[in-house]
Amino acid sequence: MKMKKLLISIVILVLLGIASIYIPIPGYMVITPGEMLNTKEMIQVDQGTKSKGDYYITSFEQGPANAISYLFSFTGIIKVEPMPPLDEQKMDVEKGKADLENSKLSAMTAAIRKAGKDVKYEHKGWEVLKDDTKYGIKKGDLLQAIDGISLKSSEEFFLPDLIKYYEKKKVGDTVTYQILRGEETLEVKTKLVEQNGQKIDDLNLRLSVKQKAEFQSPVKVNFKKLDLGGPSAGLMMTLDILDELLPEDLTKGNKIAGTGTISADGKVGIIGGENYKVLSTIDTGVKVFFCPKENAKLAQETVKKYDIKVKVVPVATLDEAVEYLRNMK
């Protein structure tokens, strides 16, 4: 009888031990390489011709951390870090959805222009999608400038020169937004903070905005519901749309993956998580991984460290990516 109770106790302890491995660690999340998303399943250009090869959007995923993920974090393939407060998580989701919609518009404009077709695109600013009580921002406000750096003349929310401007400042420095509300121009002050090793202003982290732009195109592009957020799919969406419009097949039958924001005039912008994104190409047959030049070093180091059979190609513009594909053997 005692032996039976002992065995039952041992079994229960073993089961509890196994279960505890999978129980989420409160307050922590895990970042892992995400899946690759084939743009053929996401984008359709009316009267366009699909390439023989494939374009892939790369991603990383976030979720609750557990004991197993904590142990695997020592490999460097995944990362465990504190989970942001719930309200910040909600803001990130909203911002990601808005950024994706902005990226679609920029991708269409850049690709159709590159294909030699007339596109009417006039950027007028960034329209706020939701009130922010902390800073007194109202839905419908138009962001016009940051410390005098115009946002009206740009197709990107994060200009390379704005990022460089922030790099010269210190965390805690004041940043002033110029905002148009109706016919009234307002000034809103915020502070520089640091996120993922990059300086950014606190207001920017809180806002969801959309491009206020006039857009007319001779080409209709259809997007299926995309299960992702943020602007980093911009470059790969642009390449897919462009390839469908051109008589040539830029992929030459290869698998092409990558990441990077895109502006309407074809600039490729900095992103985050490039190490996790390039890790998602392991054993997939991907030949090329495009990424912004600012992200190339970490991506190349990751490829070397884990012996990934893919070539990292840094680009600053859509033109550079297209030129590489045309010369690819």
Rank of each mutant, 00 (worst) to 15 (best):
K212Y: 10
L143M: 12
T185M: 09
M237D: 00
V171G: 07
R206A: 14
E81Q: 14
V45E: 01
G96D: 05
G148W: 11
D265N: 15
D131M: 04
Y22W: 13
D92A: 15
E187C: 06
P26Y: 11
M3K: 15
E184Q: 11
Y28L: 15
L105E: 01
P84Q: 06
G136V: 04
P33K: 05
S154A: 15
I78E: 00
P85N: 12
C291N: 03
V286M: 04
T32W: 01
P33G: 09
E323R: 12
D173A: 12
K309E: 13
A296R: 04
D173C: 11
A111M: 04
E274I: 06
V313L: 10
M83K: 12
K267C: 08
A107M: 02
Q178H: 10
T281D: 02
I179P: 01
V286L: 06
V313K: 02
I282M: 10
K297E: 08
P292E: 11
A257E: 01
D99T: 05
D283N: 15
Y135Q: 07
P84S: 08
V313C: 06
E122G: 03
A296Q: 05
D161K: 14
S106F: 00
E122D: 12
E41G: 05
K2G: 10
N222Q: 13
I163S: 10
Q62M: 15
K168T: 13
T185V: 11
P314L: 05
